[in-house]
């Protein structure tokens, strides 16, 4: 079983996230591996452990600091790490990012075939949840998204997906792109031995040229969408905080009535 997991480097949720000149501020200190990609790593490790053989690759696309995301994946136990970085990738939209990731997946797949690519359900900065579908389409592989459970047998992956109107079981032939939700598993913690090993583990560094991707197809040059303005929202004014001394419910109701909300 050979699986590639995509992991994104994102600003820490607990930090003060911001934009600088229309671009997400990404500093090494406040950046981490997207929390939801821990579920993708866990799913891949569990499948390989269950199969008793196989390898897991972690792949990130991003600036120099993004290497931290694949280091984190190494700490969790993946076997190989790849960091695709190139100045021309900056300001990519979903489709540019998918083009780059697809090219990197093909490169690994050509060395020895992959069975699955597993992604998180969303990156907690862009939050579009579009990348898994765009990647499956780019690769022309089958697609099984938003898996809250998954299993592999007989050349097929079977997933459960919980949509607002229905719970579905979906079967897709391999190779497939699967995205997993945070319900799919409980991510493990890195252990000391792996943390030490991860420091020294090699990380393959690939540029667009290594992937044969035309720079004009990605980054700002290829982007179909561009952020023209980003500004912090003003703090709310006139906020009220009261402590219940017996009539807070009435005060709350009066607040709603006055606002025309009740």
């Amino acid at each position: 079983m050979r699986i590639l997991v995509t992991v994104k480097h994102v600003p820490d949720l607990q930090s003060q996230r911001s934009f600088t000149e229309g671009r997400v501020t990404r500093s090494g200190d406040d950046g981490t591996m997207n929390e939801l990609d821990e579920n993708a790593v866990e799913a891949a490790l569990q499948l390989v452990e269950a199969a008793g053989e196989g390898e897991v690759y972690a792949l990130t696309v991003g600036g120099p600091d993004a290497v931290a995301a694949v280091r984190k994946a190494l700490q969790l136990g993946v076997h190989h790490a790849i960091h695709v970085s190139d100045e021309a990738i900056a300001d990519s939209d979903v489709f540019g990012t998918a083009t780059v990731i697809a090219a990197a997946v093909r490169k690994v797949h050509e060395e020895a075939p992959l069975d699955l690519v597993i992604t998180g359900m969303a990156a907690l900065d862009g939050l579009t949840s579009m990348l898994p579908t765009a990647l499956a389409a780019e690769l022309d592989w089958s697609q099984a998204t938003l898996a809250s459970a998954l299993s592999v047998a007989d050349g097929e992956v079977t997933i459960e997906r919980h949509l607002p109107d229905a719970h579905e079981t979906l079967v897709a032939p391999l190779p497939a792109v699967v995205s997993v939700t945070d319900e799919a598993n409980k991510p493990r913690y890195p252990n000391f031995k792996l943390i030490m090993a991860a420091r020294k583990a090699p990380v393959a560094q690939w540029s667009l040229a290594d992937l044969g991707v035309d720079a004009s197809a990605v980054g700002k040059a290829g982007a179909r969408t561009v952020v023209v303005d980003a500004s912090p929202r003003p703090a709310k004014e006139n906020r009220v905080k009261i402590t219940d001394t017996g009539d807070a419910g009435t005060q709350l109701a009066d607040f709603l009535i006055e606002k025309g909300l009740a």
Partner: peptide
């Protein structure tokens, strides 16, 4: 992030608020 926050128990506050809205 609340416009109106109550430090208290929901088991006290909600019934009172419901009663007041109904009365209104």
């Amino acid at each position: 992030i609340s416009d109106f926050g109550v430090v208290g128990s929901l088991f006290d506050v909600i019934p009172q608020a419901v009663a007041r809205i109904k009365e209104h």
